[in-house]
Amino acid sequence: MSERAAPPLLALGLAGALAAGAMLGPYPLSPVDVADTLIGRPPDPQAAIVLWNIRLPRVVAAALIGAALAAAGAAYQTVFRNPLVAPDILGVSQGAGLGAVLGILLGLPVLAIQLMGFAFGIGTIGLVMAIALALRGLGQVLVVVLCGMAVAALAGAGISLVKLMADPDDQLPAITFWLMGSLAGIKQADVAAALPAIVAGLLPLIALRWRIGLLALGDDEARTLGVEAGRLRLLVILSATLVTAAAVSVAGVIGWVGLMVPHMARLITGPRFDRLLPVALAMGAALMVLVDAAARSIAQQEVPLGILTAVLGGPLFLWLLARGGRTWAE
Protein backbone atom coordinates (compact mmCIF):
# COMPACT_ATOMS: atom_id res chain seq x y z
CA MET A 1 0.00 0.00 0.00
CA SER A 2 1.47 3.35 -0.95
CA GLU A 3 1.78 6.10 1.64
CA ARG A 4 -0.79 8.32 -0.07
CA ALA A 5 -3.36 5.59 -0.56
CA ALA A 6 -3.19 4.45 3.06
CA PRO A 7 -5.36 7.06 4.88
CA PRO A 8 -8.48 6.79 2.66
CA LEU A 9 -8.21 2.99 2.50
CA LEU A 10 -7.88 2.80 6.28
CA ALA A 11 -10.85 5.13 6.82
CA LEU A 12 -12.87 3.02 4.42
CA GLY A 13 -11.82 -0.18 6.17
CA LEU A 14 -12.72 1.21 9.58
CA ALA A 15 -16.11 2.44 8.34
CA GLY A 16 -16.77 -0.97 6.79
CA ALA A 17 -15.82 -2.73 10.01
CA LEU A 18 -18.11 -0.48 12.07
CA ALA A 19 -20.99 -1.08 9.66
CA ALA A 20 -20.42 -4.83 9.74
CA GLY A 21 -20.27 -4.66 13.53
CA ALA A 22 -23.65 -2.91 13.64
CA MET A 23 -25.22 -5.49 11.32
CA LEU A 24 -23.85 -8.82 12.51
CA GLY A 25 -25.06 -10.80 15.50
CA PRO A 26 -27.73 -13.22 16.68
CA TYR A 27 -30.32 -10.65 15.54
CA PRO A 28 -28.98 -9.61 12.11
CA LEU A 29 -29.79 -6.17 10.74
CA SER A 30 -29.58 -5.26 7.07
CA PRO A 31 -27.65 -2.15 6.03
CA VAL A 32 -30.98 -0.48 5.31
CA ASP A 33 -32.31 -1.42 8.79
CA VAL A 34 -29.18 0.07 10.40
CA ALA A 35 -29.41 3.28 8.38
CA ASP A 36 -33.14 3.68 9.02
CA THR A 37 -32.73 3.07 12.75
CA LEU A 38 -29.86 5.56 12.95
CA ILE A 39 -31.98 8.32 11.42
CA GLY A 40 -34.90 7.54 13.74
CA ARG A 41 -37.13 5.42 11.51
CA PRO A 42 -36.56 1.86 12.75
CA PRO A 43 -38.24 -0.93 10.72
CA ASP A 44 -39.58 -2.34 14.00
CA PRO A 45 -39.19 -1.48 17.72
CA GLN A 46 -37.04 -4.57 18.24
CA ALA A 47 -34.41 -3.28 15.80
CA ALA A 48 -34.14 0.03 17.66
CA ILE A 49 -33.56 -1.73 20.99
CA VAL A 50 -31.00 -4.11 19.52
CA LEU A 51 -29.06 -1.37 17.74
CA TRP A 52 -29.08 1.34 20.40
CA ASN A 53 -28.88 -0.74 23.58
CA ILE A 54 -26.92 -3.81 22.57
CA ARG A 55 -25.17 -3.52 19.22
CA LEU A 56 -23.82 0.04 19.21
CA PRO A 57 -22.44 0.08 22.78
CA ARG A 58 -20.67 -3.14 21.93
CA VAL A 59 -19.31 -1.86 18.61
CA VAL A 60 -18.12 1.37 20.22
CA ALA A 61 -16.54 -0.53 23.10
CA ALA A 62 -14.80 -2.92 20.71
CA ALA A 63 -13.45 -0.06 18.60
CA LEU A 64 -12.29 1.80 21.69
CA ILE A 65 -10.59 -1.24 23.20
CA GLY A 66 -8.96 -2.36 19.96
CA ALA A 67 -7.64 1.16 19.36
CA ALA A 68 -6.45 1.41 22.97
CA LEU A 69 -4.60 -1.91 22.97
CA ALA A 70 -2.99 -1.22 19.59
CA ALA A 71 -1.84 2.26 20.63
CA ALA A 72 -0.45 0.96 23.92
CA GLY A 73 1.39 -1.83 22.10
CA ALA A 74 2.89 0.58 19.58
CA ALA A 75 4.00 2.87 22.40
CA TYR A 76 5.55 0.07 24.45
CA GLN A 77 7.35 -1.38 21.42
CA THR A 78 8.84 2.02 20.67
CA VAL A 79 9.99 3.00 24.15
CA PHE A 80 11.28 -0.47 25.00
CA ARG A 81 13.01 -0.59 21.61
CA ASN A 82 11.68 -4.07 21.11
CA PRO A 83 9.20 -5.07 18.40
CA LEU A 84 8.21 -8.18 20.37
CA VAL A 85 6.75 -6.31 23.31
CA ALA A 86 3.02 -6.34 24.08
CA PRO A 87 0.98 -3.96 26.27
CA ASP A 88 1.10 -6.42 29.15
CA ILE A 89 4.91 -6.59 29.19
CA LEU A 90 5.00 -4.90 32.59
CA GLY A 91 2.23 -7.04 34.07
CA VAL A 92 -0.76 -4.71 33.61
CA SER A 93 -3.02 -7.46 32.30
CA GLN A 94 -2.04 -9.97 34.97
CA GLY A 95 -2.49 -7.37 37.70
CA ALA A 96 -5.85 -6.22 36.36
CA GLY A 97 -6.83 -9.88 35.98
CA LEU A 98 -6.05 -10.55 39.64
CA GLY A 99 -8.13 -7.56 40.72
CA ALA A 100 -11.09 -8.59 38.59
CA VAL A 101 -11.11 -12.27 39.59
CA LEU A 102 -10.89 -11.22 43.24
CA GLY A 103 -13.95 -9.05 42.61
CA ILE A 104 -15.76 -12.04 41.06
CA LEU A 105 -14.74 -14.24 44.00
CA LEU A 106 -16.11 -11.67 46.44
CA GLY A 107 -19.38 -11.55 44.48
CA LEU A 108 -19.09 -7.82 43.76
CA PRO A 109 -21.26 -6.04 41.16
CA VAL A 110 -19.88 -5.67 37.63
CA LEU A 111 -18.85 -2.05 37.98
CA ALA A 112 -16.91 -2.83 41.16
CA ILE A 113 -15.19 -5.75 39.41
CA GLN A 114 -14.12 -3.39 36.60
CA LEU A 115 -12.91 -0.84 39.11
CA MET A 116 -10.87 -3.47 40.96
CA GLY A 117 -9.37 -4.64 37.68
CA PHE A 118 -8.40 -1.09 36.79
CA ALA A 119 -6.99 -0.31 40.24
CA PHE A 120 -4.97 -3.53 40.40
CA GLY A 121 -3.63 -2.97 36.88
CA ILE A 122 -2.39 0.52 37.74
CA GLY A 123 -1.16 -0.70 41.14
CA THR A 124 0.88 -3.44 39.46
CA ILE A 125 2.75 -0.91 37.35
CA GLY A 126 3.30 1.27 40.42
CA LEU A 127 4.80 -1.72 42.20
CA VAL A 128 6.98 -2.64 39.20
CA MET A 129 8.28 0.92 38.94
CA ALA A 130 8.94 1.14 42.68
CA ILE A 131 10.90 -2.13 42.68
CA ALA A 132 12.88 -1.17 39.58
CA LEU A 133 13.66 2.22 41.10
CA ALA A 134 14.83 0.63 44.34
CA LEU A 135 17.00 -1.91 42.51
CA ARG A 136 18.77 -0.02 39.77
CA GLY A 137 16.83 3.07 38.74
CA LEU A 138 14.30 3.43 35.96
CA GLY A 139 16.98 4.20 33.37
CA GLN A 140 17.66 0.54 32.76
CA VAL A 141 14.94 -0.76 30.51
CA LEU A 142 15.87 -4.42 31.00
CA VAL A 143 15.58 -4.11 34.79
CA VAL A 144 12.13 -2.57 34.46
CA VAL A 145 10.98 -5.34 32.11
CA LEU A 146 12.37 -8.11 34.33
CA CYS A 147 10.67 -6.57 37.38
CA GLY A 148 7.43 -6.54 35.35
CA MET A 149 7.83 -10.24 34.54
CA ALA A 150 8.42 -11.10 38.19
CA VAL A 151 5.41 -9.13 39.44
CA ALA A 152 3.24 -10.54 36.61
CA ALA A 153 4.24 -14.06 37.69
CA LEU A 154 3.18 -13.27 41.25
CA ALA A 155 -0.17 -11.90 40.03
CA GLY A 156 -0.56 -15.05 37.90
CA ALA A 157 -0.04 -17.16 41.01
CA GLY A 158 -2.71 -15.08 42.75
CA ILE A 159 -5.12 -15.69 39.87
CA SER A 160 -4.52 -19.45 40.07
CA LEU A 161 -5.18 -19.36 43.80
CA VAL A 162 -8.45 -17.47 43.32
CA LYS A 163 -9.53 -20.00 40.66
CA LEU A 164 -8.86 -22.80 43.12
CA MET A 165 -10.97 -21.10 45.77
CA ALA A 166 -13.81 -20.11 43.44
CA ASP A 167 -17.15 -21.86 43.30
CA PRO A 168 -16.72 -24.25 40.33
CA ASP A 169 -20.37 -24.01 39.24
CA ASP A 170 -20.89 -20.29 39.32
CA GLN A 171 -17.74 -18.22 39.79
CA LEU A 172 -15.15 -20.31 37.97
CA PRO A 173 -16.85 -20.07 34.53
CA ALA A 174 -17.17 -16.31 35.02
CA ILE A 175 -13.50 -16.04 35.94
CA THR A 176 -12.38 -18.20 33.02
CA PHE A 177 -14.52 -16.23 30.59
CA TRP A 178 -13.23 -12.91 31.92
CA LEU A 179 -9.62 -14.04 31.64
CA MET A 180 -10.18 -14.84 27.96
CA GLY A 181 -11.85 -11.52 27.24
CA SER A 182 -15.40 -10.74 26.17
CA LEU A 183 -17.66 -7.84 25.36
CA ALA A 184 -20.89 -9.82 25.83
CA GLY A 185 -23.42 -7.86 27.87
CA ILE A 186 -21.53 -4.57 27.64
CA LYS A 187 -23.66 -1.50 28.29
CA GLN A 188 -23.44 2.19 27.56
CA ALA A 189 -22.44 2.77 31.18
CA ASP A 190 -19.43 0.44 30.79
CA VAL A 191 -18.25 2.37 27.76
CA ALA A 192 -18.74 5.65 29.60
CA ALA A 193 -16.73 4.33 32.56
CA ALA A 194 -13.71 3.30 30.46
CA LEU A 195 -13.75 6.29 28.13
CA PRO A 196 -12.14 8.96 30.36
CA ALA A 197 -9.12 6.82 31.25
CA ILE A 198 -8.59 5.73 27.65
CA VAL A 199 -8.82 9.31 26.38
CA ALA A 200 -6.57 10.60 29.17
CA GLY A 201 -3.97 7.98 28.27
CA LEU A 202 -4.18 8.49 24.52
CA LEU A 203 -3.87 12.29 24.61
CA PRO A 204 -0.20 12.45 25.68
CA LEU A 205 0.68 9.73 23.16
CA ILE A 206 -1.00 11.70 20.37
CA ALA A 207 0.37 15.09 21.42
CA LEU A 208 3.98 13.90 21.77
CA ARG A 209 3.86 11.40 18.90
CA TRP A 210 6.87 12.56 16.90
CA ARG A 211 9.17 12.95 19.87
CA ILE A 212 8.19 9.55 21.30
CA GLY A 213 9.67 7.94 18.19
CA LEU A 214 13.13 9.19 19.13
CA LEU A 215 13.07 6.96 22.21
CA ALA A 216 13.49 4.01 19.83
CA LEU A 217 17.12 5.09 19.44
CA GLY A 218 18.02 4.43 23.04
CA ASP A 219 18.41 6.82 25.92
CA ASP A 220 21.88 8.24 25.28
CA GLU A 221 21.22 8.99 21.65
CA ALA A 222 17.77 10.48 22.33
CA ARG A 223 19.22 12.69 25.07
CA THR A 224 22.00 13.99 22.84
CA LEU A 225 19.27 14.94 20.35
CA GLY A 226 17.66 17.12 23.02
CA VAL A 227 15.00 14.77 24.38
CA GLU A 228 14.51 14.29 28.12
CA ALA A 229 14.43 10.55 27.52
CA GLY A 230 13.86 9.31 31.07
CA ARG A 231 10.95 11.64 31.76
CA LEU A 232 9.35 11.10 28.36
CA ARG A 233 9.58 7.31 28.61
CA LEU A 234 7.99 7.37 32.08
CA LEU A 235 5.13 9.49 30.73
CA VAL A 236 4.63 7.13 27.78
CA ILE A 237 4.66 4.04 30.02
CA LEU A 238 2.15 5.60 32.41
CA SER A 239 -0.14 6.71 29.56
CA ALA A 240 -0.01 3.33 27.81
CA THR A 241 -0.61 1.58 31.13
CA LEU A 242 -3.65 3.73 31.86
CA VAL A 243 -5.09 2.90 28.45
CA THR A 244 -4.39 -0.83 28.81
CA ALA A 245 -5.78 -1.06 32.35
CA ALA A 246 -8.98 0.71 31.29
CA ALA A 247 -9.40 -1.61 28.29
CA VAL A 248 -8.70 -4.77 30.28
CA SER A 249 -11.00 -3.75 33.11
CA VAL A 250 -13.95 -3.54 30.71
CA ALA A 251 -13.24 -6.39 28.30
CA GLY A 252 -11.03 -8.78 30.21
CA VAL A 253 -7.67 -10.01 28.99
CA ILE A 254 -7.42 -9.90 25.19
CA GLY A 255 -4.02 -11.00 23.97
CA TRP A 256 -2.25 -10.52 20.65
CA VAL A 257 -3.95 -7.30 19.51
CA GLY A 258 -1.37 -5.05 21.13
CA LEU A 259 1.47 -7.12 19.71
CA MET A 260 0.27 -7.76 16.20
CA VAL A 261 -1.60 -4.61 15.16
CA PRO A 262 1.45 -2.32 15.60
CA HIS A 263 3.39 -4.76 13.40
CA MET A 264 0.76 -4.65 10.69
CA ALA A 265 0.62 -0.87 10.94
CA ARG A 266 4.41 -0.60 10.73
CA LEU A 267 4.32 -2.47 7.42
CA ILE A 268 2.44 0.54 6.03
CA THR A 269 4.03 3.43 7.89
CA GLY A 270 7.53 2.39 8.88
CA PRO A 271 8.75 2.98 12.43
CA ARG A 272 7.96 6.73 12.71
CA PHE A 273 5.67 6.83 15.74
CA ASP A 274 3.79 9.92 14.54
CA ARG A 275 2.73 7.99 11.42
CA LEU A 276 2.41 4.64 13.19
CA LEU A 277 0.04 5.76 15.94
CA PRO A 278 -3.00 6.89 13.88
CA VAL A 279 -2.77 3.83 11.63
CA ALA A 280 -2.44 1.49 14.63
CA LEU A 281 -5.47 3.18 16.27
CA ALA A 282 -7.60 2.69 13.15
CA MET A 283 -6.45 -0.86 12.48
CA GLY A 284 -6.87 -1.87 16.12
CA ALA A 285 -10.40 -0.48 16.20
CA ALA A 286 -11.42 -2.15 12.93
CA LEU A 287 -9.88 -5.49 13.84
CA MET A 288 -11.49 -5.63 17.28
CA VAL A 289 -14.94 -4.71 15.94
CA LEU A 290 -14.69 -7.53 13.37
CA VAL A 291 -13.34 -10.05 15.89
CA ASP A 292 -16.12 -9.16 18.31
CA ALA A 293 -18.73 -9.50 15.56
CA ALA A 294 -17.32 -12.96 14.83
CA ALA A 295 -17.35 -13.81 18.54
CA ARG A 296 -21.13 -13.36 18.71
CA SER A 297 -21.93 -14.77 15.26
CA ILE A 298 -19.91 -17.90 14.56
CA ALA A 299 -21.46 -20.16 17.21
CA GLN A 300 -24.63 -20.56 19.24
CA GLN A 301 -22.61 -19.53 22.25
CA GLU A 302 -20.36 -16.45 22.64
CA VAL A 303 -16.74 -17.25 21.83
CA PRO A 304 -14.20 -15.50 24.10
CA LEU A 305 -12.29 -12.77 22.24
CA GLY A 306 -8.92 -13.98 23.52
CA ILE A 307 -9.37 -17.30 21.70
CA LEU A 308 -10.17 -15.57 18.40
CA THR A 309 -7.32 -13.07 18.64
CA ALA A 310 -4.90 -15.90 19.41
CA VAL A 311 -6.17 -17.98 16.49
CA LEU A 312 -5.72 -14.95 14.21
CA GLY A 313 -2.61 -13.58 15.87
CA GLY A 314 -0.44 -16.67 16.04
CA PRO A 315 -0.35 -17.45 12.29
CA LEU A 316 -0.28 -13.76 11.35
CA PHE A 317 2.66 -13.15 13.62
CA LEU A 318 4.55 -16.09 12.14
CA TRP A 319 3.88 -14.69 8.68
CA LEU A 320 5.24 -11.30 9.75
CA LEU A 321 8.25 -13.04 11.26
CA ALA A 322 8.89 -14.86 7.99
CA ARG A 323 8.74 -11.54 6.12
CA GLY A 324 10.99 -9.94 8.74
CA GLY A 325 13.42 -7.17 7.92
CA ARG A 326 10.78 -4.83 6.54
CA THR A 327 9.71 -3.54 9.94
CA TRP A 328 12.60 -4.32 12.21
CA ALA A 329 16.31 -4.93 11.96
CA GLU A 330 17.66 -8.41 12.45
Binding site: P83, A216, G270, T327, W328
Partner: peptide
Protein backbone atom coordinates in the same frame (compact mmCIF):
# COMPACT_ATOMS: atom_id res chain seq x y z
CA UNK B 1 21.37 0.46 17.69
CA UNK B 2 17.69 0.97 16.91
CA UNK B 3 15.79 -2.25 16.18
CA UNK B 4 13.49 -0.57 13.63
CA UNK B 5 13.90 0.02 9.92
CA UNK B 6 13.92 3.83 9.82
CA UNK B 7 14.21 5.62 6.54
CA UNK B 8 17.48 7.52 6.40
CA UNK B 9 15.71 10.85 5.95
CA UNK B 10 13.54 10.24 9.03
CA UNK B 11 16.66 9.55 11.04
CA UNK B 12 18.28 12.79 9.84
CA UNK B 13 15.05 14.66 10.63
CA UNK B 14 15.55 13.74 14.28
CA UNK B 15 18.34 16.30 14.34
CA UNK B 16 15.54 18.89 14.47
CA UNK B 17 14.30 17.71 17.87
CA UNK B 18 16.45 20.16 19.83
Amino acid sequence: TTPFAWRALDLVLMGAAA
